[in-house]
């Protein structure tokens, strides 16, 4: 139990540094620290699938973020700011904070998940019948590819669309560059 508090404290400290530091590369590396702390946390929370995925995704996203920031000089952000914008953003943060604190009272105690106390919960059925109905020993795999495969199809569509958008944005610029260098 203590390891969870230690890891979450580490993640919060890294997030504080990432939010407040002036150095963009340092902020990116602190976000990487949060991600690897989260991967360790998933491992201790008995979710090895997510731990593996989180580690490899973290490596690739660090590469993407570092490539975006490393060659560009950090622009010093000017101090002036509109009064209305500042008030509105502080109001948004405070409203969500109050709403979240209200919700914290209604949560179940840690270590006692909801599906245990709910008769006929879906998760209980997956655990009991997953091996017999799908043949997969990894219940998470049987959920994402058999019971809820429709969800995974939508996920694949979202991934396809976002990669298509990134390719369209980047490729338009490259084509213009090629044309300009020809002229």
């Amino acid at each position: 139990m203590l390891i969870f508090y230690a890891l979450l404290l580490f993640m919060i400290i890294a997030a504080l540094i990432a939010v407040e530091t002036k150095n963009l590369l340092g902020a990116v590396i602190c976000v990487g620290a949060i991600g690897f702390g989260g991967a360790l946390m998933f491992l201790f929370l008995r979710a090895p699938d997510i731990a593996i995925t989180q580690i490899v995704v973290e490596v690739l996203s660090l590469i993407i973020l570092i490539r975006a920031t490393i060659a560009r000089h950090v622009t010093p952000v000017s101090g002036d700011r509109e009064f209305v914008g500042a008030v509105v953003s502080v109001a948004i943060v405070l409203t969500l904070f109050v709403a979240g604190v209200k919700v914290l009272d209604a949560l179940p105690p840690f270590g006692d998940p909801i599906f245990v106390r709910t008769p006929g919960a879906a998760s209980q059925t997956y655990l009991e019948q997953g091996l017999r109905q799908t043949g997969a020993a990894n219940i998470v795999s049987s959920v994402i590819l058999d019971y809820r495969a429709y969800d995974t199809l939508g996920e694949a569509t979202v991934l396809f669309t976002s990669i298509l958008g990134a390719a369209a944005i980047l490729r338009g610029k490259s084509r213009k560059l090629v044309k300009e260098s020809d002229a």
């Binding site: 690739l60 975006a68 043949g135 694949a156 990669i163």
Partner: peptide
């Protein structure tokens, strides 16, 4: 059943698209 086949399809899709976007970047 079809779960290993779906795994192969998903793995091909995720690997190819992520490599594509990093290459473009």
């Amino acid at each position: 059943g079809t779960i290993p086949l779906s795994n192969i399809a998903i793995g091909l899709k995720v690997g190819a698209s992520l490599f594509l976007v990093i290459f473009l970047l």
